[in-house]
Amino acid sequence: MANAGHILGLTGAHLQLSLPAIAAAFLLSLPLARLANRLRPARALILGGTGLLYAVPSLPLFIVLPVLIGTGVRDTLNVIVALTLFGLALMVRSAADALDAVDEDTRLAATALGHSSRGRFWTVELPLAGPALLAGLRVVSVSTISLVSVSAVLGVQSLGSLFTDGFQRGIVAAVAAGIAMTVLLALLLDLLLVLLGRLLMPWSRR
């Protein structure tokens, strides 16, 4: 019972690290993706930069990031920023592709109807890119949830602490419980996103 409480606490900590990162990655990816699609020179820079970021391993970034943003290695903010960057590395490309894939005819039709560029983005492009954006967001969500645990080796509390504690004290059950909870959390969040998508985009239901 004490274990259950402990695991629940760690799950909460896990979510506190991952949810802000997932949300920030999603929200920041949209303007970046739009910029990449509208300005050719920006495109190479943004997509190239996120592509490069994509190759950076997680643990070294947790360690290098404080030098750049002045946080401590074990700060919550440090972990959240790093996770956001990883999320962006995944999300910007899918968001750019999703927005780019909106049918040119539809776009022209919207312009012909008298939408301004901004209005067209909110009323036409964003909703039509919705399903593809959701697909990208789901990947970001699952990978962020699983990635958070790496920060445990730095001493940051999350479900990953079950791996470090379990390993040091030789308790297989703790490690197994940590894996199970992480996967469960990822699946639950994924399910939630799918349901949210159905609610917001009833037209995409198959």
Binding site: V139, S146, S149, V150, F163, G166, V172, V183, A186
Partner: peptide, 17 residues
């Protein structure tokens, strides 16, 4: 899909144990 959700550190420590 399942492996994507699998935390690498968990896998590593489990294998080590």
């Amino acid at each position: 899909g399942a492996v994507r959700a699998l935390p690498t550190l968990g896998l590593l420590t489990l294998a080590a144990l």
